[in-house]
Amino acid sequence: MMSSAMFRTVRLSPPLRLRNRRHSSSISALYAAFKDPSSPFHLPPGTPGPESPDTPSTHANLSTLARESPSRMEALEEAKETLLQKGFDPQSFWEQRIVWGDQDPFQHVNNVRYIRFFESARIKWMMSLGEELGGPTRAEAMIKGNGVSLILKSIDVQFRRPVTFPDTLLIGYRPVPPASGHTDVATFHVAASAYSLSQKAFVAHTKEALVWYDYDALKKCHPGERALETLWGRVREP
């Protein structure tokens, strides 16, 4: 015999099509109210809607970057002066903010991160060469592999000090004049260093081989005398 407990009242939800119709009808009504000049919800064409009650203050810090403080700006200027004294090209200077996720379980910035940090500075430097050679169009071609640009052949990183969050690194590049007897015009070397604003010291150095490369022909090439003059014109005496 079935007990009365087995009989339960089940409330069925309206069919999905009906629910969609109701939802769509409420949206249509709201849209019509926006278009109706007599409605309090009316928005004339081209007029922005009301601000959200949660709109942040214009002074809010909305980025993940550290706040700009006078002491940080002084540290940045000191870092730039240090790199300039070492002969680094100011057009390559790249500020790399350290974020929490750059650290690994050893509680310092993971070694592989530095490869990306140096890459960002190198790309900025490449674009500055392109700007000098042919303006924004040439700079864009340089980083998109159109025509003659640069390609990384090798990179050797020397780690000097561990870096932890929060910090900012200033990275600079400089071309290294070729040794006497160097005959491969397509290949040249650069040096780069990362300087910690919080430690006021260099934390990593690289030695890299770059190659002038024709991306259309897919082979290394002579970049032309003007490109070579532009490159070696960036050499600064430490």
Rank of each mutant, 00 (worst) to 15 (best):
M1R: 04
S3A: 10
S3R: 05
S4C: 03
M6R: 09
F7G: 12
P14D: 14
R17S: 15
R17C: 05
R19Y: 04
R19M: 15
R21T: 12
R22H: 12
H23V: 11
S25A: 15
S39W: 06
P40S: 10
F41G: 10
L43K: 06
G46H: 03
P48G: 02
G49Y: 07
S52T: 03
S52K: 01
P53F: 05
T55P: 02
N61A: 14
R67N: 12
S71K: 09
S71T: 13
S71F: 01
R72G: 05
L84S: 10
Q85D: 14
F88P: 01
F88R: 01
Q91N: 08
S92I: 02
W94G: 04
E95C: 10
E95L: 10
Q96C: 13
R97T: 11
V99Q: 05
Q103P: 02
D104E: 15
Q107W: 13
V109L: 01
N111I: 06
I115M: 11
F118R: 05
W125K: 05
M127V: 00
G130N: 05
G135H: 00
M142G: 06
G145K: 00
G145W: 04
V148D: 14
L150A: 07
L152C: 06
D156Q: 13
R160V: 09
V163I: 10
L170Q: 08
V176I: 11
V176Y: 06
A179T: 12
A179P: 14
G181N: 08
G181F: 05
H182D: 15
T187W: 00
H189E: 15
S193C: 08
S196R: 00
S198F: 00
Q199T: 00
H205W: 05
A209K: 08
W212E: 13
H222G: 11
E225G: 08
L228Q: 11
T230A: 15
W232V: 00
R234E: 06
